[in-house]
Computed example of a mutant assay.
Amino acid sequence: MENVFRPLSVVGGSVLLTLAIGWATDRLLHKADERNPESPLWGLLRRGRIPYQLVLCTALLRGSYAQAKLLDRHQAGVGRALTLVLIGSAAWLVIRIAGAIVETSYSRYARAHRDAARVRRVRTQVELIMRVVSAIVIVMAIASMLLTFPAMRAAGASLLASAGILGIVAGVAAQSTLSNLFAGLQIAFGDMVRIGDTVVVDGEWGSVEEITLTFLTVRTWDERRITMPVSYFTSKPFENWSRATPQMTGTVYWHLDHSVPVEAMREKLRDILRECPAWDGRAYGLQVTDTTPSTVQVRALVTAKDADDIWTVRVTVREQMITWLSAHHPHALPRVNTSDAAPVPNHSAHPVDGRVRHHR
């Protein structure tokens, strides 16, 4: 009877104690979150309750399984399994805690600064730093797990001796991966491109949606995603419309007849922009920029606070100006002039001695 009661009491007591401590910790974090609604730290820490309880339960079982005399023949295997679970859950908990601290710091920075460009830059750096921290913790956890096996510890000296050769081979084999890794760090801390920036790459216009240590994702205006290695942005030129400020200047072109009333178009452009919510009111203008034998080229300059609004302003100005010209100045629209063709001269008549000789 004791052989059954003791393991059940040890395992059941560990589970119950874990649930009790986990519930009490969660209640404390919940109260702290209610008292400090301006800080998301406590709410983010509550997301780590599962790895936290797993660490507690595994640690209690790891310390008491020997007294429980559970699976006497396999005590070494049970102890190693519990150790592996403890290391994995501890790494999981560390990543959750680090993520909560980093996210809280970013939230405070975003509230304190109104500059959208600086906030996007910090957001990019924070995400990449969090990925690096997660990778380091995972690698250390895996290394700790491997070191629990005696065979791995015995092979440590030979592995260390061959580390130089393996490093050279791995460096050559993963040259592109390493270049993307360093390019990702360069992008994060060199402020070349940030999450949310409006960019043009390979003729595609879109906004940066995700940046990792190896690749970058651009969301195009038609909801497509373009994924490319981050080394592209360190080796090839690209347009960043949000590099310093998201404000933009756009152009609208028309090809019109020479009789177009340019001054009236300037006044109409002013009226259109005043009624367009996307126009930021900074500047506008309209000039004749080119002429051809049949048309003149008229260009309008408009401004907006970002790339999305400049697109709205341009299409609005283009559409309403064409509508106004068609209704009030139809003669200003381009026309194709036609006339009767001139008669072809008769080259078959040749003058001979002052007389015209006709050939039939």
Rank of each mutant, 00 (worst) to 15 (best):
R318Q: 13
A155C: 03
A151P: 05
A188L: 06
I87F: 12
K69I: 01
Q125W: 00
S64Y: 10
G203C: 01
Q247G: 05
V132F: 01
G206A: 07
G43W: 10
M1P: 06
H255V: 06
N3C: 09
G79L: 13
S326A: 14
A76D: 10
T212P: 02
D280F: 01
D33K: 03
E209Q: 13
V296H: 02
L146P: 00
G12I: 14
Y284S: 06
A81R: 00
D222N: 07
V352R: 09
L160M: 15
A163I: 00
N36C: 14
A98L: 12
Q186R: 15
G184T: 08
F233W: 03
S176A: 08
T198Q: 07
T289N: 12
M140H: 00
L213P: 03
A81I: 01
G281F: 01
D72P: 10
E239K: 14
L325V: 06
G285A: 08
L17T: 14
Q186H: 09
H328I: 04
R225A: 05
I310T: 09
S64D: 08
M1I: 13
T83H: 08
I272Y: 01
A76G: 15
V200T: 11
V11K: 04
R360P: 05
V260I: 12
L286S: 04
R62D: 05
L45S: 04
P351Y: 11
R47F: 06
T217V: 15
M152K: 02
R73Q: 06
W221Q: 10
R120H: 13
V218N: 08
R318F: 05
V122E: 13
L41T: 07
S326V: 09
R123S: 12
V94Q: 09
T312Q: 11
P150V: 02
L301M: 03
S179N: 09
S105E: 07
T220R: 14
P237Y: 11
R46E: 10
T220V: 01
T104E: 11
E267Y: 10
H359I: 11
V317D: 00
T25A: 13
E103S: 12
A307S: 09
F149G: 04
T251S: 12
R120C: 01
S207M: 05
A143Y: 15
R49D: 03
Y284H: 14
L185H: 07
R153I: 02
V193I: 10
S294D: 05
A173D: 09
S107E: 10
M145D: 01
E210Q: 07
L333S: 04
L93D: 03
R47D: 05
W311C: 07
T104S: 06
R118Q: 11
G22P: 04
S39H: 05
T217P: 02
T212H: 06
E223V: 14
A174D: 00
